[in-house]
């Protein structure tokens, strides 16, 4: 009885979370395209990546597997590199310096 209730509640909570994260990604895509300045776009892309990590984590709970943990870590690392590249581009105008200062 209690187990059944727990499974149903987990299902409902998962669906609410999926829908919420998906709506959040769509709003962030709007900000990425429309964003008045480039820092806005950088922050929006960063947040899209975080939402993708959340989606993969939710799907891992949904499927009841731990095979997707690597994927979360992977998205996080690629996101980190991308954010550093965007930040450096915004600050210096180049991503890889040709000459040492």
């Amino acid at each position: 009885m209690l187990n059944e209730f727990g499974a149903q509640m987990l299902d409902v909570v998962l669906w609410i979370s999926f829908v919420g994260v998906t709506i959040s990604i769509f709003i962030l895509v709007y900000r990425t395209i429309k964003g008045p300045t480039n820092p806005d776009r950088a922050v929006a892309l960063d947040a899209i990546g975080i939402n993708m990590m959340a989606l993969v984590g939710l799907q891992a709970i949904n499927l009841g597997t731990d095979r997707l943990n690597d994927v979360v870590l992977l998205i996080g690392i690629l996101l980190f590199i991308g954010t550093i590249a965007i930040a450096k581009f915004l600050e210096k105008g180049v991503i890889i310096d040709r000459h040492n200062h």
């Binding site: 590199i81 550093i84 310096d97 000459h99 040492n100």
Partner: peptide, 11 residues
């Protein structure tokens, strides 16, 4: 690429 971004191309 992270090393290239941080330390520059020549190093």
């Amino acid at each position: 690429i992270l090393m290239y971004i941080t330390y520059g191309y020549e190093k």
